[in-house]
Structure formats: C-alpha cells, structure tokens
Amino acid sequence: MLMTKEVIVKWTNRVKRHYEEKGYLFSAIGKEFVCKVEHLSQGSNAGVIVKCSVCGDDCEVKFSRYNQIVQNQRTYRCHRCSARRVGKMKKTPILIVEEAFKSMGYILLDKGYKGNSQKIKYMCPQHGEQVGTYAGIKKGHGCIRCASSLRANRQRAPFSEVQKLFDVRGLILISKEYFNEDTLMIFICPKHPEKEQVTNCAKLRAGWGGCRLCSNEGRRGENSYRWKGGISKLQEIARHTMIYSWKLESLAKANYRCDVTGMNGKLDIHHLYPFSDIFEQALKNTGIPIYDKVNQYTEAELEVFSKELSKIHFEKGLGVCLLPKIHKEFHNIYGKIDNNPEQYFEIKPYLMKKYKVR
C-alpha cells in the first residue's frame, strides 16, 4: 500500500511535458514543486513510503521500483518478505534432502531444513556429528575429515617404498602400519638387536634418523672430531683429582665467596689461563707417553704427572671463584680457548653491574 500522498520533484526537460499535461504550471528547469504521488511519472526516482502487504512494516523505496514490484507481484512485499517467498519457492523437499545425504553415506540429524545454504547437522559413520549444507552435498562436499583422509591416502607413499628406505640403511623394520612421513616406525639394528628403536621416514629421507647406537659409536674414540690421541680420560681425572689442593687454596683465598657477587654457595673455580694449555704443558714437561686408557699408566707416572700439573697451576696463580651461571656467561662471551686474565678483568665491571653488585 502506497502511504505517501505528495512528494517534491524538480522540473527537468525529460518530465516537463508530462507534468504540464497533468495541469502543473512550469516555472524553471531545476526548480522544485509539490506533486501528488498519483501524478508521478512511471520512472520517477522520488522516494515514497510503502507498507508491506505481508509484515505491515513501512519501507522507503523509489517510486519506479515500487511500480516495477507491483506490476510483477500485484502487491508490494518488503525485501525480507520477498526473500522468504523466493526461499520457499526454491526450498527443496526434506525427503530429497535426506536422500542426498543418504546417497553419500550420511544420516541427516537436523530436520529443521529451511534452505539450500542453511547449515544442518548430519552423522558421518567414521567421524561422528558434522555440519554442512545441502548445496555442498549436491556438489559432493561432505565430511571434511573424510576428505582429508582421502587426500592423505592419495599422497601417502606405498608401504613398499617405506620398507625400501629401511632396507637401504640396513635396518630391520618391525612396524606394519604407516600413515605419513612423521609416523614413528619401530626398527631393529642388526648390530644392536637387543634394543628396539624408533624413527620416521622424513628423517631417513633427510639422511639421518638411523640407529643411534651406531651413530654414537661413530663419534667416539678415534672417530671423534675432538680426538687428541687418547688423553681425554686422563684429562678428566686430572681436572677432578690432581689439582684438588689448588682448588682448596683458591676457595680459601676468596673466603668461599663469588668474586663478582660476594655470594657464597656452590662455586666454580675459573682458570685465568686455560686448563687445556696447562695440561699439555705438564705432558710436555714430564714426557710421559699417551695411552688410550688411564689404567695403562703406572702409579709412578701418574704421581709425577700430578705433581707437575699442580706445580704449573700454582705458578700461574690461583683461580677465581665464580657462581656457575657467571662462569658459564664468561665462557659464552670469550669461549674456552686462549683465555687470559685480561679478559676476566675486562668483563668483571660489566658482570658486577648486571648482577647489581654495590
């Protein structure tokens, strides 16, 4: 129903003749005048108020649009009511919708179907309750998780290829299930059959991820990049037992407190000169041979070496007591090779400021 009675329009060359025939007195192009709504031209863009014949709401539309709707529908419906009418006309019967879901192996759970684009619940036999639309089902778009599984199956390498990866590395594959490159697979190394190990295909393709025990053996002893002729075991014993008196005197001199913070507790003894350099100097001075194992040395050789190592330590001066975290930070900055006293005294003010020492 048209609610507007009069509207304001402008004189234009296009409508001048129309309104003069309706009895309106022309004034000037572009000038406004009041016109009754029934005298408007069919294509007028003047805004009018119309009542929806369905919901009864007042709507503002162009007069030309109102005429077009009335001619097609014989009555005016607002935008919302028109959409509902179109939706009802296009709505697929619920039985057809159920059959579409059933054809893909799904069970329709939501019976309140309103339109093709409405999200409705359905049951997937493999992955449980899902949400989708009838429009999507018609296009073949079903359960997302099923689609992911299908895509994964197409991209998954055949088990024979997986078996070949282990065979090439000389490993015995135990697992029989393979899902993707990251699947952990159980295997046994022929050299270490007493222990089952795990890896995945991604690691094997990258050239690693084989037997860890074999890898560790390949980095020990003479195979290690740090191999120095078999002195590591002797060096460990020397560090922990042969310089004990030097450590005690270093702690006593510092009153068992950190040189940076003044705090007591667990302390490291920092060498102002690298321990490795002192150790090699002691080996050179004593001239004792280098053996693979410490038990190959005689007690006399160890005693001579111990005295020489301790003597050089005291000649270089006592160590500096530091909290473990400060000791670690020093070596993170300067490394563990070619250290000297100048480095420590250079960094000490910075460490004192960082740890708020007054």
Rank of each mutant, 00 (worst) to 15 (best):
E342N: 03
G43I: 07
C81G: 01
S53F: 08
G105N: 03
N264Q: 15
G56V: 02
R77C: 00
Y76W: 15
I29R: 04
S117Y: 11
K31V: 07
L25T: 11
I174D: 04
C59R: 10
K176A: 04
A202D: 14
A46I: 08
P158Y: 09
H127C: 00
L248Q: 15
K111L: 07
E329K: 14
C81M: 02
Q281R: 05
K36T: 04
L322R: 06
S148N: 13
V37H: 07
E222Q: 13
Y297V: 08
N340W: 01
W246L: 10
I269R: 03
L95N: 08
A135R: 07
I94V: 14
L251W: 14
D338N: 14
N295G: 03
I326V: 10
F275H: 07
V9W: 08
I337G: 00
S64W: 09
L204R: 05
L108K: 06
E315H: 07
Y178E: 13
K356V: 05
P289I: 07
E181I: 13
A202N: 15
I8P: 00
K353S: 13
W11A: 07
R151E: 07
I188L: 14
V294W: 02
C124R: 00
E308N: 03
N285Q: 08
Y106P: 04
R145A: 04
K191I: 11
Q163V: 10
K307S: 04
Y244C: 02
I120Q: 05
E329G: 01
Y19V: 12
C81K: 02
F187I: 11
L173V: 06
S41P: 12
T133C: 08
G140L: 10
V61G: 00
S215T: 14
H18D: 14
K348L: 15
L248P: 02
E249P: 00
Q126H: 02
D58Y: 04
L2Y: 03
N116Y: 03
Y344T: 04
E342K: 07
Q163I: 09
E329C: 03
R358M: 03
A147Y: 05
C52K: 01
E301A: 05
V37I: 15
E196Q: 12
G207D: 07
K266I: 12
K311P: 00
S148E: 13
S245R: 15
A28M: 06
Y178H: 13
K356C: 08
K191F: 11
D182F: 13
D57N: 12
D259P: 00
S82V: 05
I137H: 03
K325C: 09
A202G: 12
Y76S: 05
H331N: 06
Y244D: 10
G47V: 14
E99K: 10
K119C: 06
D57Y: 07
K348N: 10
N339S: 05
L272H: 05
R169G: 01
F279Y: 12
R145H: 04
I326E: 01
I144L: 09
E181M: 12
I278Q: 06
D259W: 06
P193G: 09
Q235A: 13
T4Q: 06
F305C: 02
K164P: 00
Q71R: 14
Q71W: 04
